[in-house]
Nucleic acid binder design. Structure first.
Length: 435
RNA sequence: GGUGGGGUUCCCGAGUGGCCAAAGGGAACAGACUGUAAAUCUGUCGGCGUAAGCCUUCGGAGGUUCAAAUCCUCCCCCCACCA
């Protein structure tokens, strides 16, 4: 990234104008640290699910930005810490995950990070797993070589712990209480092995990160830095990253590229410029131009399209984006659904729910809507039909009726392979096939 | 350990024997308007049923009653104050 006068911009300053810097332990120290190329920094990802979700995108992307700026970030997988459970931001004790599950998730997330980084930098990332250095640590080592550097008094002052102790009905187990010293040790370990002196993370990670900077200061007699990101919220106050259907995952098997794209394209005007800064590599100038577009012609949604395209390419690649755009054009374009090329239509609906029936054993429409997951119950389906929320092949229907031969598109004269497109509201599609 | 107050449908919260599938608000879904936005207005919001109606639900288990979210008994959990 360059400044307006052409000089290379310090990556720290870039993160600042993008609005990604929340807290820094030593602003000048961090800027200086990042001035020289080839510096190491890290961020941890605990394996709480099989796939990362877009809540992980800011930290992940920040490490990628570091890499693109010539640094050497470390992507840390919490194979060990994931077994303990981070109390940060949690108001009650977590169930322990079983080890096989954690190992499985670590493998998935590792592959995911590698693919993501290679797509966006052309280089292989350095992925480390804290299980590798924690698994053989003895209790004596932990207590003598790590625990001795932490006073309980200091630990009790951390928000993650304080919140749980003040509410005595929840409490905190010794296990979760110890989480911060493990994460602290990670930082120390990476400092020693890779010369890593900067850890970044979400706003709730401040306590854990400073547990590391403390340990490094005391044990290694050197400085280390902490940087956290702000909590991302939407203008209307909703949690970012959740659609009505749940979290938006980065893996195509958890959230289809189509759904992923749709999530971003639906970003509110009031959020879109901010999100372009957070979630794309676009420059300040490019983003300012898009902001001007939003002000001039909001109905064009140029910024939303740019945001959705950039994030989809970043996570799923160009090829997937092309497919998603074709599907979006087919489903939201001006044309008549029925006149669309059937191949295009079928491809567009690839990730929509689909059911196959025998023509002479077709259930009633309400049941089909329930089968497709478009409506939660037959009663609700009937109400939706009455409310005019349901359309068949793009034609709105207002009373319950059975699907007839005329409703099916595809090979004429053949019931085999023919299909009908059901839609609820503007955005929910389902496919009925005859088999 | 003592005393007092509670646990209601996704969330908050009203309801103290029939008029209760249960007020109101929020969330959610849909319709209108727009731009696959926001705001606003409208409708829906336990299940089955075209409907009449039936079934399931008010922390849990029993009981009283023609009838219980509402009364009684026991149990579980939470909150507040005191010790």
């Amino acid at each position: 990234m360059q400044t307006r006068n052409g000089a290379m911009m310090n990556i720290f300053d870039e993160l600042s104008w993008r609005g990604l810097v929340h807290q820094v332990s030593d602003t000048e120290g961090v800027r200086k640290y990042l001035d020289a190329p080839g510096q190491a920094m890290y961020c941890g990802f605990d394996p709480t699910a099989e796939s990362l979700h877009i809540g992980n995108l800011v930290p992940l992307l920040s490490l990628v930005r570091m890499m693109r700026a010539g640094h050497k970030p470390l992507f840390l997988l919490g194979g060990a810490t994931g077994l303990i459970g981070d109390p940060s931001g949690k108001d009650k004790e977590r169930e322990l995950s079983n080890q096989d599950a954690v190992n499985g998730r670590v493998a998935h997330i590792k592959a995911q990070i590698e693919a993501f980084v290679e797509r966006n930098t052309g280089q292989k990332p350095t992925v480390v797993n804290n299980y590798d250095w924690v698994k053989n640590m003895s209790a004596i080592e932990l207590l003598r070589d790590v625990g001795k550097y932490y006073t309980v008094n200091w630990m009790l002052g951390k928000d993650s712990v304080k919140g749980r102790i003040e509410r005595d009905e929840v409490g905190i187990s010794y296990t979760e209480f110890s989480y911060m010293i493990l994460q602290g040790y990670d930082f120390y370990h990476l400092c020693k092995e890779y010369g890593c002196r900067l850890q970044i993370g979400g706003g709730d990670q401040w306590g854990n990160i400073t547990a590391g900077t403390e340990l490094i200061r005391k044990k290694a007699a050197g400085d280390a830095f902490a940087l956290t990101f702000p909590l991302i919220t939407t203008a209307s106050g909703k949690k970012f990253g959740k659609s009505e259907k749940g979290a938006i995952f980065m893996s195509a098997s958890h959230t289809s590229p189509y759904a992923f794209y749709q999530f971003w394209i639906n970003t509110e005007d009031a959020d879109v410029v901010r999100f372009l800064k957070y979630y794309t590599f676009l420059s300040l100038e490019e983003i300012e131009a898009l902001a001007a577009e939003v002000a001039r012609a909001p109905q064009e949604r140029a910024a939303q399209k740019a945001l959705a395209a950039a994030t989809t390419i970043m996570v799923h690649g160009e090829e997937e984006l092309a497919k998603v755009l074709a599907a979006t054009e087919a489903l939201f374009g001006k044309g008549d659904l029925k006149s669309l090329d059937h191949g295009t239509l079928a491809a567009a609906l690839e990730s929509a729910p689909a059911r196959e029936y025998q023509f002479d054993a077709l259930p009633d429409l309400a049941q089909i809507l329930v089968d497709l997951g478009l409506c939660p119950s037959k009663g609700q389906a009937r109400k939706d039909i009455q409310a005019g929320a349901i359309s068949v092949n793009g034609d709105k229907i207002t009373e319950a009726r059975a699907l007839t031969q005329d409703d099916f598109l595809g090979e004429v004269n053949a019931t085999q392979g023919a299909f009908a497109v059901l839609r609820k509201g503007k955005k929910n599609y389902g496919l009925v096939r005859l088999g």
